[in-house]
Computed example of a mutant assay.
Amino acid sequence: MVKAAVVILAGTESHSDTGRLVNGLEAAREFDENPDDELELIFDGAGTQWIPELEDEDHDYHELYQSVSDQAAVCDYCANAFGVEDAVGTTDVVTVDENEGHPSIRSLVDDDYEIITF
């Protein structure tokens, strides 16, 4: 069994950011499709900006996102800092705030998750 935490940090500003997002979602899907693996998918920092975009059914990567969205969480602090708190609030994506408003990467490491950032 593999325990993986895929953390999307890439923003929405460039083609390379989109590439990092897609690679992160593809990695997340690969773990999610293996019934023996455990997956945490976290949108953090500028990556929180992707949630409202990916929730749009017309977005190129909406289907890929939907394939793992039930595993997704978003940093509460960063959603506010990047101006997407209200948009995230209209979705089913959970917010995480264990570490002063941020996800606790330490607790994931303590739980033997491999942390993979994109």
Rank of each mutant, 00 (worst) to 15 (best):
H59T: 03
K3A: 01
P52V: 13
N80I: 09
G47D: 08
T18Y: 07
G89T: 14
E26Q: 10
Q66T: 14
I115K: 12
Q71E: 12
E40F: 03
S14P: 02
F31L: 13
D17K: 03
R29P: 05
N23G: 04
E33C: 06
T90L: 04
F118S: 08
E85S: 14
A27H: 11
V68S: 05
A72G: 03
G47P: 03
K3L: 00
T95P: 08
D92C: 06
Y113F: 15
S69M: 08
V84E: 03
L21G: 05
L25N: 09
D17A: 05
D110Y: 03
S67Y: 00
T12V: 13
D32Q: 13
Q71I: 00
I42A: 14
I116G: 09
G101M: 07
A28G: 13
E26W: 00
A4V: 15
E98H: 10
S104D: 13
E40M: 07
H102F: 09
P52Q: 06
D56K: 12
F82E: 06
E98N: 12
G24Q: 03
L64Q: 09
T48L: 01
D58A: 04
H59E: 12
E26V: 06
V109H: 12
V96F: 07
I42L: 15
D70I: 03
F118L: 02
V84A: 04
V84T: 11
P103N: 01
S67K: 01
V96Q: 12
H102Y: 12
L25K: 07
A81Y: 07
E114S: 15
L54I: 08
T117W: 02
E55W: 00
G101P: 06
C78V: 02
A79I: 02
D36S: 10
V109W: 06
T12G: 01
L64F: 08
V74W: 02
R20H: 13
E38G: 03
N99F: 03
D44R: 04
E33M: 13
F118T: 11
V109C: 05
D58K: 06
D70A: 08
N34R: 14
I42D: 09
H59P: 06
V96H: 12
T117Q: 15
E98I: 12
H102S: 09
F118Q: 14
L108R: 11
G47W: 02
E38P: 01
E63S: 13
E100F: 06
S107A: 15
I115D: 14
V6T: 05
I116K: 07
T90E: 15
S107T: 14
D58V: 00
S107K: 14
V22P: 03
L108C: 08
T18Q: 15
N23Q: 10
C75T: 09
V6E: 01
